[in-house]
Design a protein around this nucleic acid. Sequence first.
DNA 1: CCCATATGAGACATATCTGTCTCATGAGCA
DNA 2: TGCTCATGAGACAGATATGTCTCATATGGG
Lengths: 185, 185
Amino acid sequence: MSKIRPTTQDAIVEAAFEVFSENQGASLGDVALRAGVGRATLHRHFPGRPELMRALAKIALAELEEAVEQATASATSYEEGFRLSLFAIVPLANRQWFLANEGLEADPEIAAAYDASLDELRRDVTEAKKEGAFDPNVPTEWVVEAYENLIYAAWSLVRSGEATPKQAAELAWRTLSQGLKGRAE
Amino acid sequence: MSKIRPTTQDAIVEAAFEVFSENQGASLGDVALRAGVGRATLHRHFPGRPELMRALAKIALAELEEAVEQATASATSYEEGFRLSLFAIVPLANRQWFLANEGLEADPEIAAAYDASLDELRRDVTEAKKEGAFDPNVPTEWVVEAYENLIYAAWSLVRSGEATPKQAAELAWRTLSQGLKGRAE
DNA sequence: CCCATATGAGACATATCTGTCTCATGAGCA
DNA sequence: TGCTCATGAGACAGATATGTCTCATATGGG
């Protein structure tokens, strides 16, 4: 049937994440070139640009959820969960960046899934505040923004070759946890 | 001579910052529309897209430098200088974002000026470390990344209406200074 | 009033991107 | 060997962005 060799599709997806994280407005030709694939082949797997974007968003959401779920499985507190999640997400930061920056409001299903993941993040922040991991006086929305942007900062550091993913994640975690820790202890 | 009414040019520039911060790949037609100006008029002021980008970059650099200079004039320490600069930059974050995200490597002069401003930031971080404002064990490059990305986080908070620029800058400063403060006191 | 000039509207050619189609090739399999 | 199918290469048309040009208008100064 549709026994398409999965390696080609995977190559396109990975190339797309790379290319779009370097240049949002890249053409499908650029993606095909990076994937080492003909432009027509790209269209055989993904009819058009919207379909490719949609597929990337779904993959990004799934990979991030998987990474976080696996990371938090062994966590004994919300604070530790955040720390482990951050380490898991830094290597996948171009996925996170894609979700945050590529206009996906157009697709209701994707937008809803992304909103849901943000809501879960907000809930976890609230719980972590109760634990004392974050200062309750800091708005939850700021914790979320700082979390996401420090992940991006860590990724930038890794990309420039200044640090390993583990080192960068450590720095990001230190900045977030120490920066937003409750002052009264 | 070239007595072009400055308001038109200013309107184009301001519209361009707005439009491009919302959508990197926006067309010149979008910019002209936002500026309330004919597309041909835009081309009269800026021959083409590269020239417009170059002009925006130069303006962004000048405005940021001006804001930082003014903010740090009254500072009595590097730490206070960082704090005041951050408050001054948050309202101009779309300029900072433009410089960081729009491909300006193509223009040697702009790239050099941007690199120079980053170098100055790195030097100031080094001095602030000596003051004890930042942990000397934290790589300077991480301080720079965290600084820029927390500014962006603050801007996002402001954009979503969750906070005023002052509130967001306060949160960003708290996160940065407390998060990277030397541990041994 | 008269003229210079900045502007808006729109026509126009060009370039790039996009999506479809056709055809030849080559690898895997019976 | 012969068949199937994914692929690469390239032609093609349509859409959009870009840059130039022309013409009519209006505003402001002399």
